[in-house]
Simulated assay, not measured.
Amino acid sequence: MLANIAQIPLPRPNLHSVVSRVIRTTESVIPFRFKQKALEKGLNKAFHQPLEDDEFWFLENQYLGVEVTDLGIKVVISCNAERLIVCQQDNADAWIKGKAEDLIKLANRELDPDTLFFQRRLLIEGNTELGLAVKNLLDSIDWDDLPDSVRKGLAMVQKLPI
Rank of each mutant, 00 (worst) to 15 (best):
S28H: 06
A38I: 10
Q49W: 09
D53T: 00
G65V: 10
R24K: 14
F58I: 06
K45D: 05
G72D: 06
K35C: 00
A46C: 14
S78I: 11
K35L: 08
H48E: 15
P31M: 09
A38Y: 03
A92P: 03
A38D: 05
L84V: 11
L64T: 07
F56A: 12
N14H: 07
I85K: 14
D90C: 00
S17Q: 12
V75G: 07
N80Q: 14
S28M: 05
K35P: 05
V66E: 03
R33Q: 08
H48I: 01
S20K: 15
Q49N: 10
Q88W: 04
E40S: 00
N44M: 06
S17V: 04
D53P: 02
T69S: 13
E55P: 00
L39S: 05
I77N: 05
N44D: 04
V86A: 09
F56M: 13
G42Y: 10
P13Y: 06
Q62H: 15
E82M: 13
N14A: 09
A92Q: 10
L15Q: 10
L71W: 06
Q36Y: 02
H16D: 02
K35T: 11
F34D: 10
D70K: 08
E67K: 14
Q49L: 13
D70W: 01
R24Y: 04
N80R: 15
C79L: 08
L84S: 13
E55A: 01
N44L: 05
K74R: 15
V19L: 01
R83Q: 14
Q89P: 02
